[in-house]
Design a protein around this nucleic acid. Structure first.
Lengths: 338, 338
DNA sequence: CTGAAAGCGCTTACAG
DNA sequence: CTGAAAGCGCTTACAG
């Protein structure tokens, strides 16, 4: 019971294999009634073109590889899904590889994808790949300056400015702390720089002890530890900005554990708005990142490189972020957008 | 600059293409020094076997397709990742398709996977596929009784018994409500049945108005609506069980919106323990599902079917669930396990 | 518009 | 243990 092949289809339709093949692949020079006859035959015998054979012969795998730290992580899950929607609509399938943030696994993933002859790559690097792979590549989230056909990330610096701005303008905060991710990859570096710039622009000092670093996974647990350190300081900050929603989760718990409350004793705003931001206590004031736009944009850039075939200089795209004001910053009620 | 092929490798190593191929694919009958010579040559010219050609010729795509409602959803993301780890270790790659719970998209996904000649399938059905596909298939999460080579799901009924049991035994509850998912697929049906059985076994009545149904996505919003309805009842329940963590999120908010508190005014326990369960307010008492075990088990079952080649009768595997006791049930402190 | 033929890059009996 | 040869199921110039 092997799958029917083009030969079977040709026999059933009473045409040559060439014509049968052309009819199935949407080639222009096939008479309309011939095409219909072939398609009817295909339906009759349940013919489905073998994508593997097609790939081998046409030298297009129609696969795009995607490398992320962790597909089970909300941000990457949503980004990948958005990219997948765009790529599938263009006839591509995706091959997703997880690296768990280990550079050597990132290199292994790249090798696997190349063995599968992917036509292009979307890469949220953890530092394992530092130069352009031999196929069109778009870096996203963590960027490799000038590499690949494109770089897509959220507007990290601008985002930090919005967060600092809200705390200062709406709440009159001056002593603002920052719970940072490790400043190793661009997302971590840009947010830290953005925090410093935003503070400096407002003539506010960045107290060294008020910048605390979490772990590589930006985990809730590291947020708890960091916030605990912060609260142990003699001079407690009025507000804290967390570099991610996960860090915020841990930080809020540390505040509660200390018998204090957000936002009454300390205000908190976060980069990244989790899907449950409106269901937390207190509801989280946070920056929406629009992962869908990010994934779609990254996918569009590879598609463009695939279509034009030109390996042009890398373009850099920034996805804007917007503040969702809720309760954790000290605002009275949810609703208003910055 | 096309990739080097087996011919290039053979020339570089000074052997025939047959021997070069055998040396690369780990065939036994190749002299050790020959193999080493070929491997050295491969490294020199950067030869990487073309998986597409290999698949076409050997008639094994080495792909396993995975169909889920939504890869960006925590449960499916973690399950898929666990399955992927097992499958990759066995030399397979995965092809993940999302259906967004639409039956026609599930059918389209299956068709796409078959066109790619996947060797096996892992399927968390939303009802689009009701019989065994033409390749080894393991159903998971939502089952299709007796179909495929395997069925893997959490112990839904047992889980409901644990939840009801805790509310009754530890907290003396009698009027217990249930915020259900739609009882369409096995996960929803089994949990509802499990709730009824658990109540009946304890001689507790199931008040019809105390069973409220959420939407197909088991969304937080539907949890809010359901809980609001519940709280509007003249006879308010002492405790509520939610069919999922997402429903719990919405339900807790509805309680707060009403000016009441969990667990003081109404206790709440949940099926599904989200990664932030310990960071919520109140901390959630919930059933851990061990998605890793689920995904690994499902993957192992397809691998087994792939290895033996026998399409035997379907086996059914249940992944045990365990209660994580925190605060939302009314217990004083986190820690103890049921 | 259609057909005969070559070939994508491998694997795998078949001989030796 | 190694090589020559066939062939997996398509696509795609090349003729007509």
């Amino acid at each position: 019971m092997a799958d029917p092949t083009l030969s079977d289809l040709a026999a059933e339709a009473g045409v040559s294999r060439s014509t049968a093949g052309r009819a199935m692949s949407g080639h222009k020079s096939v008479r309309d009634d011939t095409r219909r006859r072939v398609q009817a035959a295909a339906r009759r015998i349940g013919y489905e073109p073998n994508r593997i054979a097609r790939s081998l012969r046409s030298r297009n795998s129609m696969f795009v590889g995607i490398i992320v730290p962790d597909i089970a992580h909300g941000f990457y899950g949503r980004t990948v899904k958005a990219a997948q929607d765009v790529l599938e609509a263009a006839g591509y399938q995706i091959l997703v590889m997880n690296t768990d943030r280990e550079p050597h696994r990132e290199q292994a993933a790249l090798k696997t994808l190349l063995a599968h002859r992917v036509d292009g790559i979307l890469l949220a690097s953890s530092g394992g790949v530092t130069e352009s792979p031999p196929v069109p590549t778009v870096f996203f989230d963590n960027l490799v300056a000038g590499a690949g056909e494109g770089n897509v990330a959220r507007a990290n610096k601008q985002g930090m400015d919005i967060l600092v701005g809200h705390l200062v303008d709406a709440h009159g905060c001056e002593r603002i702390a920052y719970l940072s991710g490790p400043p190793i990859l661009t997302s971590g570096i840009e947010r830290l720089d953005g925090f410093r710039d935003a503070m400096g622009a407002r003539r506010l000092p960045v107290v060294p002890e008020h910048v605390v670093f979490g772990d590589e996974a930006w985990s809730p647990e590291s947020g708890t530890v960091a916030m605990r350190d912060l609260l142990a300081l003699p001079e407690r900050p009025e507000a804290v900005i967390t570099a991610s929603d996960t860090i915020a989760l841990g930080a809020i718990q540390a505040v509660r554990d200390r018998g204090l409350a957000v936002p009454d004793d300390i205000a908190l705003v976060s980069f990244d708005d989790p899907f449950f931001g409106a269901f937390m206590e207190p509801q989280l004031t946070a920056l929406r990142g629009d992962e869908r736009a990010l994934g779609e944009h990254a996918a569009s850039l590879v598609l463009q490189a695939l279509r034009t075939g030109s390996r042009e200089r890398s373009v850099e795209v920034r996805i804007p972020v917007a503040l969702t004001v809720r309760r954790s910053c000290g605002c009275a009620s949810p609703g208003a957008s910055h």
